[in-house]
Design a protein around this nucleic acid. Structure first.
Lengths: 252, 252
DNA sequence: CGTAGCTTTGAGTGTTATCAACTCTCGTGG
DNA sequence: CCACGAGAGTTGATAACACTCAAAGCTACG
């Protein structure tokens, strides 16, 4: 059962060891040492693929695992009785999903793949046990959860106090930065989400989002081809989106 | 140095042992056993008092401690360059402040006492070390942070997708429930915050908040005497405020 | 190609913000 | 003890930002 030691056996080449993973800088392992990584490998389950529209978990599902996103984009959504939707987050590779389920041992939202997605399941119970033994891992988990809180607080500022224009600008800047951290362009965005999703994220009607894209384009801020967005004037966009006091240092 | 064993020495009667604290059910200790509580006592610092308007920490302050609220109400606020304010949370006795600072080792918001407040400082480094030894404490911290995320996600739903009316109703219901958990009335609210604070929390103008209070009163939902609110029709208020799918089980 | 979903654009409306004046409360000092 | 003043709260009038409804154009996939 626990026959994998050191160099992780890859079953049919599907599973990559954490220490070989291209996302090791961004994902959980940051700050862990060689031995810790090996221990983590033993905990992390198979790498699996979800197709567009499939869910990682649904509202009310019991907490079994956390999920490390390896590739693709995921949205998490909360639903109101009358059908109103709030997207609580978009997740990109290197980010961890599901920590909001720890509180009540069940997921308080639904996580859906916006495109083909690769994830590693991390059984929570095992992760917690390992964190008990590895101080760096415990700390890293605290940090990741804290970062999630900081992100949500910024979203609160956006939804509570920023105009539609400011919200979209801030979101684009944020996406660009996160894409850049993955080694991709910070100018050319390929949005995985629809205008509707974006509206549900920013607290706007999809028509408002569409109009804003058009206006930003007219003003020479960006160039829009459907979901392909090119950022032409990053400075001005940042200026619009960040009336915020300070940039989020979303370290690791 | 480590001369306190079992019964905690109270210096001038200022410090109460965690295990004797009236909030032990709500605060950090939940789920900890006798020995764990004694260990926690050794970590928790003096109990101190803040007067209305004083701050526990300010935006940018380095993370030193987390803070367990023993009495009174605290608001946390984020500030935009042009002066716009977002209240990111109101904290009541038994709740833990400051976890959002773990991410970047500095506080991303300012925490201010809305009335006379009592807090216990919990040096974070020491707490983390203790959590490393006490599994129940580690788990409890994960839960507390997860709960904070769930709360923020609900706030996102409120700010993004609920009307002004729904937001205020939801907030009142939420305050009532939290007050009830402290053993106080769930009908008679004594709000510690101004209409302005409430507006900055709900993403509304203070005038809108005021108008809503008046309207709720006309409709027989509540009775308003300044900051004293009596809930007359809790069911209808809940109905208005919670288009949400499920109640937050904000356990512990 | 045809169809279904996504996106854009337009017209009209409404909720909530803004500006402004007035009232109330409470603490302080004459 | 009462008057005063400052901050907090209420209420009204007006305006604006973003929503809703509607229709047409586009894209992509079968």
């Amino acid at each position: 059962m626990r026959d994998r030691v050191g160099a992780v056996v890859t079953i049919g080449g599907i599973k990559l060891a954490c220490k070989d993973c291209s996302l090791r800088e961004l994902c959980l392992p940051l700050g862990l040492h060689e031995a810790d990584l090996t221990a983590l490998d033993r905990v992390v389950q198979r790498r699996r693929t979800l197709k567009k529209g499939e869910t990682l978990y649904r509202y009310g599902d019991p907490l079994r695992s956390l999920y490390a996103l390896k590739g693709g984009t995921v949205k998490t959504t909360g639903l109101m009785e009358d059908g109103r939707v709030q997207v609580t987050g978009f997740y990109m590779p290197g980010e961890l999903l599901g920590v909001d389920a720890i509180n009540a041992d069940q997921h308080p939202c639904t996580a859906e793949a916006l495109e083909t997605v690769e994830v590693c399941d991390i059984p929570f119970h095992a992760l917690e046990e390992l964190a008990q033994k590895v101080p760096a891992l415990q700390h890293q988990l605290f940090r990741i959860m804290s970062r999630e809180i900081v992100r949500d607080e910024q979203m609160l500022m956006m939804l509570g106090r920023m105009t539609a224009e400011e919200r979209l600008a801030a979101a684009l800047v944020n996406f660009a930065r996160r894409q850049a951290r993955l080694g991709l362009s910070d100018r050319l965005l390929r949005l995985a989400m629809s205008r509707q999703d974006l509206g549900d994220y920013l607290g706007l009607a999809l028509e408002t989002v569409s109009r804003l894209f058009s206006r930003f384009q007219e003003e020479g801020l960006i160039s829009v081809h459907g979901r392909q967005i090119e950022i032409l004037d990053a400075d001005r966009l940042r200026g619009m989106g960040s009336g915020m006091a300070g940039e989020v240092s979303v370290s690791a």
